[in-house]
Amino acid sequence: MTVDKNAVKKIARLARIQVSDEKAELLSADLGNILNWIEQLEEVDTTGVEPLASVNEHALPWREDIVTDGNITEQVLKNSPEVAGDFFVVPKVVE
């Protein structure tokens, strides 16, 4: 498996991580190596094997429909790098 520079940039873009051309080059080799190593999984015959997402065997617990939370605006905003009034603030988004 090779992951070329453009592929690295595409993934980095999906993951919202800025990657310079130089770094993309390094990562291309890195990721290629790791993926090559991972490809040993192809040796395993998984025909008809149900994928396992969680080892949990118990049922998903259901919560009662009661309001038990909220009204903690101060806590919610406390760690934010930028706040105006009771809003979080980000660079302007154009739709």
Binding site: R16, I17, N79, S80, P81, E82, F88, V90, P91, K92
Partner: peptide, 19 residues
């Protein structure tokens, strides 16, 4: 993502800020 907690590197657009 630099919005609700932690470090933020300021940038002109939202996506650039994230990245």
């Amino acid at each position: 993502d630099g919005v609700r907690y932690g470090n933020r590197i300021e940038a002109e657009t939202l996506d650039l800020m994230y990245e």
